[in-house]
Design a protein around this nucleic acid. Structure first.
Length: 429
RNA sequence: CGGGCCGUAGUAUACCGGUAGUACACAUGCUUUGGGAGCAUGUUGACUGGGUUCGAUUCCCAGCGGCCCGACCA
């Protein structure tokens, strides 16, 4: 990946088409949207609709790849389903009706026939699987995708947190029976925690018991503690579990072996949600398999979602500080921000360029601020962009025989000799 | 969907019933160069449609758009 990115213009800040803004957008209160827009990661097209710009896309792809690795490790097979939806399969499950599923965007073909924009994909995938699952020997299967979802929310809000168009990773599981479904469900829950840990939210994210909506008794949400979150949950810090306020009854608590006294109320962001679906969709759409005796059964299914934009927003919401964004290493658009403070001194620029080449040779993804602007502006932009490590080259650092290494998360600063810089980055960052 | 607030330059804002001001950005020049520099010059603006008025960016109405609270939320 690095070699193909090597000559990408987005790595030279002077060539990056996005600019940072000193001030946040008018009317935008949510910190995630304010910082992501100010720093040029995303562009807001309309309420609840965001486009990803070069830096934002790199973050997005990093998050996507983390999720993809974890889904593949579960045995997931990636697909990409259509967003345009025929009403037929949705009518079969009763979900074409706006009274049942009220977030539909619907339109018509030139012929006059109705189509919808997919708000989720249980129906079309179950329909696809009918052509590929006939026997118990064909199970289990775990199929996932990263695909746009369209939801006609009454009110888009909180920046990236509730939008009308967003990419979701949605996985659907097909098992022969409830026991094997359960086993997978738990493995997936563990994978989700690994994902949230890798994106930097592990400490604050709790597997949370929640309502199952219309089709199952319960579901598990993954809630990231955050004062600006929409949900209210009760968490048990030692046990690392939570209960959504919506379902927090005495009965539920005793089932879970929790008591009110040991729980703490907090606001949180729902960064993921996994659902047992039972045989609801397989039955409605006629997906069956034959057991060893030739009898037909509907597979046990589940669905497992993570909204990527919301996750990106949650990372910003939770980890940023007063100066800007603080990206965890695995999701940062670049590992290093090389800043030359040359004031027009060609020697300094030459040194910075050499260091840039050195970093690239060692596979360290670097954004090089080669712009001819003053130090203060570069530092302010660097703080705002939030790359994990900043490398400063200036007359001062050259006189002292090294490179200044500043960690964004802690502001700690160290002068490291250039000969040791690669080693330092590999061990400290 | 109920309620509230708000639409002025690329961005953020001010004033005003009578030629719309400031900051940043942008352009040119000079100075400056480790925390969003200084001086000079220049470019750029009233969401749309009605109404009231001699005159509306300002007041009124409607539409459109944005944010917030609530409701809603596989």
């Amino acid at each position: 990946m690095v070699s193909s990115m090597r000559y990408n213009a987005t790595m030279l800040q002077s060539r990056l088409f996005t600019k940072t803004r000193r001030e946040g957008p008018k009317d935008e209160v949510a910190k995630n949207a304010e910082l992501l827009i100010r720093a040029g990661y995303v562009h807001k097209d309309m309420a609840g609709v965001y486009s990803y710009l070069p830096l934002g896309l790199r973050v997005f792809k990093n998050i996507e790849n983390i999720i993809r690795e974890e889904m593949n490790a579960l045995g997931g097979q990636e697909v990409c389903m259509a967003t345009l939806q025929s009403p037929i399969v949705w009518k079969a499950t009763g979900r074409w009706d706006d009274a049942v599923l009220d977030v539909w965007f619907k339109t018509t073909l030139k012929s006059g026939d109705e189509v919808g924009l997919a708000p989720t994909h249980e129906e079309p995938l179950t329909n696809i699987m009918k052509g590929h699952i006939q026997s118990y020997k064909d199970l289990p299967h775990y199929v996932y995708q990263f695909q746009n979802k369209f939801r006609n929310e009454l009110r888009a809000k909180s920046g990236m947190m509730r939008s009308r168009e967003f990419v979701m990773k949605d996985l659907y599981s097909f098992n022969t029976d409830e026991a094997s479904f359960r086993e997978f469900y738990e493995r997936c829950a563990s994978a989700y925690m690994r994902i949230f840990t890798r994106v930097g939210l592990g400490d604050k994210t709790y597997r949370t018991y929640a309502s199952g909506g219309s089709f199952s008794k319960f579901s598990d949400e993954f809630q990231t503690v955050c004062s600006t979150g929409e949900d209210t949950i009760y968490i048990h810090k030692e046990k690392r579990v939570g209960v959504n306020k919506e379902v927090c009854t005495d009965e539920v608590l005793s089932t879970l072996g929790l008591s009110r006294g040991e729980l703490e109320e907090t606001k949180a962001i729902e960064v993921g949600n996994i659902f047992p679906l039972g045989t609801r969709y397989s039955e409605a759409l006629g997906l069956t398999y034959k057991d060893v005796k030739g009898r037909a059964h509907a597979p046990y299914t589940g669905c497992y979602g993570i909204g990527l934009g919301r996750l990106m927003g949650a990372i910003v919401e939770v980890l940023s500080d007063s100066k800007g964004i603080v990206w965890p290493k695995e999701v940062a658009p670049f590992q290093a921000h090389l800043v030359s403070v040359s004031g027009g001194n060609a020697q300094v620029d030459g040194e910075a360029k050499r260091l840039y080449e050195l970093l690239l040779e060692h596979g360290i993804e670097t954004l090089y601020d080669d712009r001819d602007v003053r130090a203060g502006e570069k530092f302010a932009d660097s703080d705002l962009l939030g790359l994990p490590v900043r490398l400063v080259v200036s007359e001062k650092t050259m006189a002292e025989g090294g490179v200044e290494v500043v960690l964004r998360a802690t502001s700690s600063s160290t002068l490291v000799p250039e000969s040791g810089i690669i080693q330092y980055l590999k061990t400290h960052v």
